[in-house]
Computed example of a mutant assay.
Amino acid sequence: MTIPVFYSISDDFTKYAAVSLNSLVKNASPQNDYTVTFLNQDLSEKHQKQLAAFANDYVHVKFFHIDEKLVKPIQNRKENYLRADFFTMSIFYRLFIPDLFPQYDKAIYIDSDTVVVDDIAKLYNNDLDNKLFAACTDSSIQYVDKMVKYIKEVLSLDPKKYINSGMLVLNSKAFRDEHFIDHFMHLLERYHFDCIAPDQDYLNEIGDGRILHLDPRWDAMPNENTEPISKPGLIHYNLFFKPWHFKDVQYNDYFWKYASSTPFYEELKGELDNYTDQERAEDRAKLDHMLEKEASTALDPNNWAQVKRKGERVKL
Results as ranks from 00 to 15, higher is better:
residue 252 N to R: 10
residue 54 F to P: 06
residue 169 V to K: 02
residue 49 K to W: 06
residue 306 Q to S: 15
residue 222 P to R: 10
residue 261 S to A: 10
residue 18 A to I: 05
residue 47 H to L: 09
residue 33 D to F: 11
residue 130 N to W: 08
residue 288 D to Q: 14
residue 152 K to I: 08
residue 237 Y to L: 00
residue 120 I to N: 08
residue 63 F to T: 01
residue 31 Q to V: 06
residue 309 R to C: 10
residue 94 R to A: 10
residue 106 K to Y: 02
residue 100 L to W: 03
residue 227 E to R: 09
residue 208 D to G: 00
residue 113 D to A: 03
residue 315 K to V: 04
residue 19 V to K: 03
residue 245 H to D: 08
residue 240 F to G: 12
residue 92 F to D: 08
residue 154 V to L: 01
residue 268 L to E: 13
residue 244 W to C: 04
residue 112 S to Y: 15
residue 163 I to A: 07
residue 103 Q to R: 13
residue 22 N to C: 07
residue 213 H to N: 06
residue 257 K to N: 09
residue 52 A to K: 15
residue 6 F to H: 01
residue 3 I to G: 07
residue 293 K to N: 14
residue 36 V to H: 09
residue 195 C to E: 01
residue 153 E to S: 06
residue 47 H to W: 07
residue 133 F to V: 01
residue 17 A to G: 04
residue 17 A to P: 04
residue 17 A to D: 05
residue 103 Q to M: 05
residue 50 Q to A: 10
residue 175 F to K: 07
residue 269 K to Y: 07
residue 127 D to P: 04
residue 81 Y to R: 07
residue 153 E to K: 11
residue 102 P to G: 00
residue 3 I to N: 10
residue 166 G to K: 04
residue 290 M to L: 15
residue 88 T to E: 12
residue 251 Y to A: 04
residue 186 H to I: 04
residue 236 H to E: 03
residue 194 D to M: 08
residue 224 E to K: 13
residue 297 T to H: 11
residue 30 P to R: 09
residue 33 D to S: 15
residue 11 D to R: 01
residue 147 M to A: 11
residue 60 H to T: 14
residue 287 L to M: 15
residue 291 L to V: 12
residue 213 H to I: 08
residue 306 Q to R: 14
residue 281 A to G: 13
residue 153 E to N: 13
residue 130 N to H: 12
residue 167 M to A: 03
residue 121 A to V: 08
residue 187 L to A: 09
residue 37 T to K: 11
residue 69 K to H: 13
residue 302 N to D: 15
residue 267 E to D: 13
residue 153 E to H: 11
residue 250 Q to T: 03
residue 104 Y to Q: 01
residue 248 D to F: 04
residue 180 F to T: 04
residue 314 V to C: 08
residue 210 R to F: 04
residue 273 D to L: 12
residue 162 Y to K: 04
residue 5 V to M: 02
residue 229 I to F: 02
residue 122 K to A: 10
residue 15 K to E: 05
residue 116 V to L: 05
residue 10 S to A: 11
